[in-house]
Structures are given as C-alpha cells and as structure tokens.
Simulated assay, not measured.
Amino acid sequence: MGWFGWRSARERGSAARATDAAAGDLSGPMAILEAMDQAAPKYLDRVDRGEVVYPACKRTPSDADGNLRAIWEHTRIEAMRYLIMVPGRKDEWLIDPARQAEMLDAFLRKAPHENTVIDFTGIVTEDFAIAIIAGLNWLIHCAVLAGVDRKKFSGTQSSFRKIAVVARRWWALEGSEPRCYHMLAQREKPPLMLYLIWLEYTRLAKEITATAVFGASMGQTRDSNLFRRALGDRRAEPDAVPAAVSDAMARLERAGDPEELQG
C-alpha cells in the first residue's frame, strides 16, 4: 500500500518513515497526524497550566500568543483535538485510499449534532464522524465568540457534507486509488478524509483569527499599542500603526497556513 498501510502512524517503524521520506511524503497526511499528536497535548497542557487564554479566539494582542500565527494555529488545534482523542484511533480510515469510500459513507450516514462535549461509541468510523462534526461545532462556537460575520460560517455542517458527497463520488470513479497516489507524489491534496477536515478547519480558523485580531469590520481600529505588540512593530510613531495593520491583514489574506506567517 506504499505510504498508507493498515498500520497507524504510531505503529510504523523508522524504516516505513524512511520510505515515506524517499517518496516525498513528509508534508503529506501522515505528517499532519504526527504533528497533531505532538502539538495538541502540549497545547492543552499549556491551557491547563493557565499559560494561554483559552479558547485562542478570546485572546487580545497583549496576551501571550496573541499574535496572528498563534491564534490561527491554536484555533485549528482546538478543533483537531477531537480526532486525536478518538479511542483506539486507526489512522488508515483518514488517509488510506482503500478506506476512503467506506469512511465517507460512515460520515454521511451520521446525523449532524451540535455538541462540543462528546461521547465515543467504540466503533471507529462512527467515532471519527462524531469527532469531525464536534470539531466543526467548536469552530462555529469560536466564530460566534469572535464575532465573525454569520454569513462566513452559516451552514458550516451542511457545506462540509456537500464536500464529502463530492469526495465520495471522486472515490467511486475508476482509477481513483492510483490517481490519489499520483497526486500525493506531486504534493497535491486528493480528497482523503484527513485533507478534507484539515482544509476546512484551516479555512474556518483563519476567518476566526482575522476577526479576533482585526475586528468584525476590517475598517475597525483597535488600540495602537496592542497592535504594535501583536504585529511586532516597536516603532513609536502612531502613523506607522495603520500601515503595520494593513500589512498584517494582507499577509493573513495571502497565507494558506499559519506557518506562512512566521517571521
């Protein structure tokens, strides 16, 4: 099965990871899961110790990790944690091309819910579906807290289900598995369930971050000292602040991932 065997990322040995590296897969779906396995517990430990404001969307620029990159990244982690929490997690359901049709069917059979506090059933595909929906619900909750324009997140669950329907049709096409492997080799994103989740969570977390930092209207102005701290602008001239804010807004708009805001 190449990159996507029956074993999860945590069960694979160094030889398998070396094969992934040779195939150019380090930025692929397995790497996302491995990164979340490390990042989510560390972040939640910081939350438990009171080191950061939680949820991230409630931070101000004067708070620890109150910058654009951290708020975006941490908001996405908050949504992804539900997947990481699935008991007996078997990652092949999220990333193995041979499993995607069945996983998508299981997701589409699951009735939407509005919960962010969830109970798992012990049935892995059903638990993944519950976790995916809970992550979307968390982002809706954060969007409300941040004051995001409702038009930008209204119908989030139904929109994602439509994406899942299109993905299911893609996997029903002849040759979908070889086409998937070809796309992965080209560092493209085929409609693996993990990628569907990751891209949607990233998009919603970005909308939340923009509003949390810049306000519901891009024309709003916040305290200039707070913006200097958020944007790393240490210049004293008040006239420099609007330019710094405009630059930060443009960088956020162009970015496809929090890592692109580094530096």
Rank of each mutant, 00 (worst) to 15 (best):
G5P: 08
E11D: 12
R17F: 08
D20K: 09
D25Q: 11
D25R: 08
L26R: 14
G28P: 02
A31M: 11
I32E: 07
Q38H: 15
A39G: 06
P41F: 14
Y43M: 07
D45W: 10
V47P: 01
E51G: 06
E51R: 15
V52I: 11
V53T: 11
Y54T: 08
Y54S: 13
P55G: 01
C57T: 15
K58T: 09
K58V: 10
R59H: 02
S62W: 10
S62D: 07
D63M: 00
A64W: 01
A64R: 09
N67K: 02
L68E: 03
W72M: 01
W72E: 08
R76C: 03
I77D: 08
A79W: 02
R81H: 05
M85W: 11
G88V: 15
R89H: 08
K90A: 10
K90W: 05
D96Q: 06
D96A: 12
A101W: 03
A106H: 01
K110F: 09
T116F: 00
V117C: 00
D119I: 11
D119M: 05
F120K: 06
G122S: 04
I123A: 08
I123R: 06
V124C: 07
T125L: 11
T125P: 00
E126C: 04
D127I: 04
D127Y: 03
F128R: 00
F128L: 13
N137C: 14
H141A: 12
V148Q: 01
D149E: 14
R150F: 04
K152I: 09
K152W: 08
S154F: 02
S154G: 12
S159H: 07
S159R: 15
R161E: 13
K162Q: 13
A164N: 05
V165R: 10
V166S: 14
E177R: 11
P178R: 03
E188L: 14
K189A: 07
M193H: 08
Y195N: 05
I197E: 07
I197D: 05
E200Q: 13
L204E: 00
A210V: 07
T211G: 03
A212K: 02
V213T: 03
F214W: 01
G215A: 09
A216P: 00
A216R: 14
A216S: 06
S217F: 02
M218S: 05
M218F: 06
Q220Y: 09
T221G: 12
S224L: 11
R229H: 13
A240F: 12
V241N: 11
A248C: 08
E253N: 15
E253F: 14
R254E: 05
R254V: 08
D257L: 15
P258V: 01
L261R: 07
L261G: 05
L261N: 03
G263A: 01
